[in-house]
Nucleic acid binder design. Sequence first.
DNA 1: TTGTAGGCGTTATCAG
DNA 2: CTGATAACGCCTACAA
Lengths: 379, 379
Amino acid sequence: MAGKSAHLITGIRRINNRYLKVLGYRKKGLKRMMKVTIKEVAKLAGVSIATVSHVANNSRFVSDQAKSAVLSAMEQLDYQPNAVAKSLRQKTTKTIGLIISDISNPFFTNLVRGVEDVANKKGFNLILCNTDEQSQKEKTYLDVLSQKQVDGIIVAPTNDNGVLFHDLVHKKFPLVFVDRYLEDMAIPAVISDSEDAAYLAVKHLIQLGHTRIGLANSLPSIQTTNDRIKGYRRALTEFGIPYDPKLVHQGDSKVDGGYKGGNKLLQLANPPTAIFATNNLTTIGVMKALQHAGVQCPEQMAVVGFDDFEWASAFRPNLTTVAQPVYDLGKIAAQMLVNLLLKKGKVPVPEITKLKCSLIVRESCGSALPRPLRANTNN
Amino acid sequence: MAGKSAHLITGIRRINNRYLKVLGYRKKGLKRMMKVTIKEVAKLAGVSIATVSHVANNSRFVSDQAKSAVLSAMEQLDYQPNAVAKSLRQKTTKTIGLIISDISNPFFTNLVRGVEDVANKKGFNLILCNTDEQSQKEKTYLDVLSQKQVDGIIVAPTNDNGVLFHDLVHKKFPLVFVDRYLEDMAIPAVISDSEDAAYLAVKHLIQLGHTRIGLANSLPSIQTTNDRIKGYRRALTEFGIPYDPKLVHQGDSKVDGGYKGGNKLLQLANPPTAIFATNNLTTIGVMKALQHAGVQCPEQMAVVGFDDFEWASAFRPNLTTVAQPVYDLGKIAAQMLVNLLLKKGKVPVPEITKLKCSLIVRESCGSALPRPLRANTNN
DNA sequence: TTGTAGGCGTTATCAG
DNA sequence: CTGATAACGCCTACAA
């Protein structure tokens, strides 16, 4: 029996060695240092691996003696628990996915920060994914994240993966929409009140005396874009101003779209005296169009932009904007997801949460009504 | 023997059931759908799990018949391989960590995008971490990332974790510095040539006729800050202009620091005729200071800013800037790391790679020398 | 051409 | 109070 046992052991050793050779960092030049495992800590401390695990997580009582032996062994060996193994066992990765369209858009930048701050505070890490509005990339990321077993996903969805999201909710996969949402889906969403934002901006312009107000809008067919048109029209209606579809330009949520929109509005036979741009990049495009056409703001054209910028008050014209609570958007979405994952508080009903935007008045609207432009203004 | 075998099997079942009850999603309300594993696919397809694995990764020849059986089983069950299990086995997570100081700083925004783009293309995901320049947070993140077994880390290091980084290189942990670096460390770094950038900016101003040039600098003691001072002085020396320490302000790489720096420079008995701001946020601060003091740019004060902005040409004054190749910084750092991980190409020698900045001339320097301010300009 | 089974590093049950 | 050990899901050496 002793012989058999010995045989077994060497058998195992042999196998172990094989594995070591194969897995344990191949090519000479680049061999990584072997990470120390719970087993080695246990051996050094003279206790079982169970005990080591329990002091690491203090998940059950361990005698002071054993505990200090373990702790000093950990110290000596510079032990770091392997989170991957833990994840496999516990079926939770303490990681959440964040899918947005483009981190280099300042809007998402602050949103991401909001998410990261609460995630970090609650012990979660963030895998960042940029879709560039391509639903194919979104699909791929959704797949990868799911394979990587992230605990949940926060996403600013594109339009075309409805079925995919539907499948995910069906599998009870924890999901939160942010900035946008898809209709008829049992997924909580945190968005800003675009309709109200547009209403605020347009009302402000009307109260300054404007009656012809251009709308440089974002990507058509996106939820938020439609809401902004609604708010625009509501303000007009409220003040008895007729709606002129010529004054509305559908852009692409980028600088270029804003530039084109600005140009188009300037070239109307009866151009507006004010423009409301419904997206941060669109706003920049509009300002460029004005500059190239030599139209002074606010003297010849009032402008209200979207999303506040750090620098809005450092350059001329200081821009009047409707500011979305961008950081909070991310923060609240993350809180929802994390609460859901931690089952703390009540599980959020899958409903949409709207945050209010605020109007920040600066000089770009002027105080008086600009004198109307004629069509030939683009000197 | 048959009896014994049967006993064994029921024993395993019992245990299985126990585990299922314990691990397989406790609380009634929120039970997640059990994920399907390779085992179930194998059973449905009538092959061994080895075969399933091999068709999933096509890692060995499988007969057409078996292959199609497996594929259809996967389809039917909507099988998704568990990347965590795979990672545990293969000791690679296809994930890299990115540690920066603050994603909401537009500088890092584009850098992150560069990293994400190449990582994504090469099949890696990104875990994003913000340190806010706190070395304690950096330390924690380094720890967590290492426990999560990321394959490598790209980091814009703070100053105070030298030993930690040293330990990591010693363990052969794949690391790349970006934007900054720590001295005497065998870690490759991708940075922009700050010394040259400052030289370019200052030389430009000198060539416009300026001899008193203010420097609104960033955080003291950071590598890049010192380099910028060097470039500043080199340009002065080259044109025989004396160095006046009063013209140099050390800020904090934030808006506030720039604002204070701008004010300080304006209030000098003999104020500069031009200011070079060495950081994007600092630049905004300087512009705010000028605006509050009622100093016209470029008529009364020329300004060269740092980092180009999307909107730099949409507002007045259109800002002349020294643009860092921010996106490329991230892109190249990521390429280095990925090549190292994939062992493709030659492993990069741990040396620092400097990318050139470029001067983008716009109106904020004017074309003629401004008339000198007197100390009482801040009307 | 395919199957068997050990092992990756943990956690947690059960049995002392 | 502590230890032994199955299992998490997958990959792959070896055997057939």
